[in-house]
Amino acid sequence: MSNKIKVLIAEDMEPIRKRYVNVLNSDPNIEVIGDVATGSTACELAFSLKPDVILMDIEMESKDAGIRATGQILSKLPNVKIILLTVYEEDEMIFSAFQLGACDYILKISKNEDIINGVIGAYHNQSPIRPEIASKIRNEFKRVKTYESSFLFMLNILSTLTPRELDTLNLLINGHTKKEVCELRCVEMSTVKSQVHSILKKFKKRNISDIITTEMDRSLLETILHNYYNK
């Protein structure tokens, strides 16, 4: 390598931080250009020094300081490689950081050679997808697929409702009785009952309470209502 890999270290435990500094500086291909103890300082230094690789402790001034710093840095410097420093391999925070764009993680008890190889691998886009992370990624894909299927199903059904049916559905799921819906909308009970029958038929449900069961459903209904009444 003609140029040294510029590394920034963010770790709130000074003995650990200094160890990383010494280990990485011992490699002729790596140069530690800064070491800090907080996520906020890591952001400031990253923006000014533009390192190639950052070793980022997950928990510093707050439990998720490293995660938040990872997101902030990658939003402005997407090409920076961020490696998480963690005590526990199964830490759920690791996956959160991977979702934000972190490329690898290193256990704090790792051997010197593993730390050096981790930095070099990240720099060359050769960081491995660990089995633990691969499993979480597969589960996340399944979750997203289920979410999208549910979302599209709900969207398709809601799009078949008339504005009045949407309005009636919204009032009922927010706790109003049919009588109150009549009073609020100034319509006859027969009209509301007809709308409820139509809504249940389209959703193939027996009760209004069975239609909107998640916050995602509720949010989608509110969005569609907003679009109808603000055209």
Rank of each mutant, 00 (worst) to 15 (best):
M1V: 06
N3F: 07
N3M: 10
I9G: 05
E11H: 03
M13L: 09
R17L: 00
Y20H: 11
L24I: 02
S26A: 07
E31H: 05
V32Q: 04
I33V: 01
I33N: 00
D35Y: 03
T41Y: 06
F47M: 08
D52E: 04
D57K: 03
I58P: 02
K63N: 14
G66P: 06
A69M: 01
K81Q: 01
I82A: 02
L85R: 08
T86R: 06
V87E: 15
V87Q: 10
E89N: 10
F95Q: 11
Q99V: 09
G101Y: 08
Y105L: 09
L107C: 11
L107H: 00
I109R: 13
I109F: 12
E113C: 01
D114L: 06
D114M: 07
I116L: 00
V119S: 01
V119A: 03
I120R: 07
S127T: 06
E132A: 10
E132S: 11
A134Y: 02
A134D: 07
K136Y: 08
R138M: 11
K142L: 11
K142E: 15
Y147N: 15
S150V: 07
M154K: 13
N156E: 15
N156D: 15
N156I: 02
S159N: 15
T160R: 15
L161E: 04
T162P: 03
T162D: 01
P163Q: 04
E165V: 08
D167N: 14
D167M: 13
D167T: 13
T168P: 09
L169G: 14
L172G: 09
T177W: 02
E180S: 14
E180R: 09
E183F: 08
E183H: 05
M189N: 09
S190W: 04
S190N: 15
V192I: 11
K193T: 12
S194L: 04
S198P: 02
K202A: 01
F203I: 00
R206H: 12
N207Y: 09
N207H: 09
S209E: 14
I211V: 05
T214K: 03
M216S: 15
M216G: 11
M216R: 13
R218D: 15
S219W: 03
L221R: 02
L225S: 14
Y228F: 07
Y228V: 12
Y228I: 10
N230M: 09
N230R: 13
